[in-house]
Design a protein around this nucleic acid. Structure first.
Lengths: 123, 123
DNA sequence: TTGACATATTCCCATATAAGTATGTATTGT
DNA sequence: ACAATACATACTTATATGGGAATATGTCAA
C-alpha cells in the first residue's frame, strides 16, 4: 500500500512545506490566487493544485467574486493537529526536567572531580 | 517530483496514522518492539520500518539491552509541530468569535422578522 | 464578439512510499 | 554448539504524488 493520500486528512495535507506556507499566508486575510503565486514565487497551476488539496480537507475556504477567487485559511481545521501535538506537552516538560536534572548532576560531578585551576584533561 | 520523504521532517513522519499511534504508545514509557507489535496488532517488520522512520527524524530514542531494544517517544521533537499549529490559535479564536457574532445577528434578525407564535414559513 | 485576464484541470513522469513475504543478524539459554 | 528469541533489512508491487507544460473554463472589458 502506498502512502495515504494528501487529501485524507489535515496531517497529510500539511506535510507539504508549500502548503504550510500557503496556510500561514492565508491566515492573515483572504487573498486571490494570484497573490499567492506572486508572494510565494510558485507556478500558478502548482498553487491551484495545492489549494485543491487544502480545500478537500477543509483547511481553506473560498469566496468567489467575479473572476477572482479569494482563499482564506480555516484555522479551525488546524486545531486537531494542535491538540494531538499538545497531548505530548506534559512529556516534553518532563523530559526537560530530566535533562536539567542530569545536567545538574553532571555539574556536581564535575565540580567534585574536576579542578578548573589544575585541569587533569590531556595532562 | 514525488512527495517529500517521510524521513524529511516530523510533519511528514507523523502523517502516517500508525506512526502517531506508536508515538502515543511510547510516550507513556519505553517499550520493546514486541510490545508495540502486540498492542497495536501490527506485523513486526512493519513496526520496525515505522520505528526507523521515527528514529531518523528524532521522534523516538532507543536503548539497547541484550536482544531487546526499548523505544520511547522523544516528545521534544513534536514541539515544532505544536508550535506551528499554535501560530493559528488566535485565528481560530477569532473565527469562533465571528461565528458567534453571526449567530447572534441571525438570532436578532429571526427575533425581529420571525414570530414563533405565528410562523410564516410554509404558510 | 473578441481578446485579455484569473483560475482550474489534464497529461506525463520520476520517485517514494507501505504492506507482505522472506531472509539476515545479534543475543540468550541450554 | 545449537535452537530459540528479538529485531532489522531486502525485495516486490500497487499507488499517490508534485512539478512542468499545455490546455480548458469562466469572467470581464472594449
Amino acid at each position: 500500500m502506498p502512502r495515504a493520500a494528501t487529501t485524507s486528512d489535515a496531517f497529510n495535507a500539511v506535510a507539504e512545506p508549500r502548503r504550510r506556507q500557503i496556510l500561514s499566508y492565508l491566515a492573515l486575510r483572504e487573498r486571490p490566487v494570484g497573490d499567492i503565486v506572486e508572494t510565494l514565487s510558485l507556478d500558478q497551476p502548482s498553487v491551484s493544485k495545492h489549494l485543491r488539496v487544502l480545500r478537500r480537507v477543509g483547511l481553506v475556504r473560498v469566496r468567489c467574486e467575479g473572476r477572482h477567487k479569494f482563499y482564506r485559511t480555516n484555522a479551525e481545521a488546524i486545531r486537531p493537529l494542535h491538540e494531538w501535538a499538545g497531548t505530548f506537552e506534559r512529556y516534553w516538560q518532563h523530559q526537560l526536567l530530566s535533562v536539567k536534572k542530569r545536567a545538574e548532576e553532571k555539574m556536581t560531578k564535575l565540580n567534585s572531580d574536576f579542578d578548573p585551576i589544575n585541569p587533569k584533561e590531556k595532562p
